[in-house]
Design a protein around this nucleic acid. Structure first.
Lengths: 226, 226
DNA sequence: CAACTTTTTACAATTTATTTACAGCGTGTG
DNA sequence: CACACGCTGTAAATAAATTGTAAAAAGTTG
């Protein structure tokens, strides 16, 4: 069973989050301040942590930094009333995985939680490098080669490839990619994915006009084949 | 036999619902308040639940939320006198499958119940892959083979096959296919279905001019036979 | 600001879906 | 049994939806 640790002092917020998470079928543990949060993160071993930035005594930023410094790699979603960009940057720098600004829709938050849990679950079987055709990828170093030659891929391109490879053989929809690679909740009609795929094909396919690795499945999406 | 749990306190309503359901051939269990409802949902294992929003002590919303949080996935149809949109939204958010506002026609309610039961029944027998004759389908990967050879089916063709297979042995009308596969509400006269069936036969039948799997039932529709 | 990456836009190319048209079939009737 | 009439099969034409991709616009980064 999935366990969620909520570190939040504002009672109304706690109730709302707790109910939503329990409704989602998660087990919930609540901590009212940073100190308690640190303790419970260690003892309860939650699968994900929802962390308010504004806490009495010890700020969420500090809690997050401390957790990471202790080697705890549980996904952390930061919650805040402030919408300043700087906060977001600090939060992510300090090791949070996601950052949600109040007021947020519960639906969106739950979706993000699901995404993190999915990602975390998958990481176990994740590989550091992957080779197909004459392409060689190193996900840890973000480096790639084709025919032994250095190949220049952007961060986004790497993420797309990583996702496709994780799901190789399966059909991956554009929505799925937008959700998981871009982190978008709902997708307006956009051709972004197609464009990235096209560029990727130019880079990795032996013959981009006749893709062998990133195959399109009409009406459904794409499929990666080794 | 289909069992319906009615959670409702108003006696007249109970009688009306009970009679209608029994006339429809369902077995009926009644709970007079939320607490009793929760108990019976667990002990009686109904196939569907009709739940009044206005209940003494514990509201229908709470009952619904609790049921879902306990992992009970039985279809829930909420009944209410209020017609505010907000109620509806809350109801559906909290995990109800449908929402009917009083006064409602019994006929409509029964139709909705049937729809939910159909849907629920289908989910159980759903498969990831299916084999018949020398054809092998994988609905998850949207891949197909015939005689071991890759077979190219469009997304729509897959959906038609999926529907036929779910209802194998039964007669499936063109309207049914248009409704369920195409999502069309009402169907003007069209030969679309016939054309798709013809194309499917070309692809999957050993001898398309003498169909063995997708058989036409004159004046009624088609029937899938393994 | 300059170099780069990402996203949007626009339109062509491709694939799939639908309609049309007509031949042939099934069935009930005189 | 022939014949009418609605039902079905299906090729071909037409329409619609989906995808590829270049180029422009917007956004990022150092």
């Amino acid at each position: 069973m999935v366990k969620v640790l909520i570190i939040e002092d504002e009672p109304n917020m706690v109730v709302g989050l707790k109910d939503s998470c329990e409704y989602e079928g998660y087990e919930v543990v609540v901590a009212r301040d940073g100190k308690e949060g640190l303790e419970k993160a260690a003892t309860e071993k939650p699968d994900i942590i929802l962390l308010d930035v504004m806490l009495p005594a010890m700020s969420g930023i500090d809690v997050c930094r401390t957790l990471r410094s202790r080697g705890i790699e549980t996904p952390i979603v930061m919650l805040t009333a402030r919408s300043q960009e700087t906060d977001k940057v600090v939060g992510l720098e300090v090791g949070a995985d996601d950052y949600v600004t109040k007021p947020f829709s519960i639906k969106e938050l739950l979706a993000r939680i699901r995404a993190h849990l999915r990602r975390a679950a998958r990481q176990v079987v994740d590989v550091e490098s992957f080779t197909f055709g004459d392409v060689e990828l190193n996900f840890k170093k973000y480096s790639a080669r084709k025919d032994g030659q250095a190949l220049d891929l952007s961060a986004r391109e790497f993420e797309i490839l990583r996702y496709l490879i994780r799901h190789r053989g399966e059909i991956v929809t554009r929505d799925q990619l937008l959700d998981e690679v871009w982190g978008y909740e709902s997708s307006p009609i956009t051709r972004t994915v197609d464009n990235h795929i096209a560029r990727l094909r130019q880079k990795i396919e032996p013959d981009p006009s006749e893709p062998r690795h990133i195959v399109t499945v009409h009406r459904l999406g794409y499929r990666f084949i080794e």
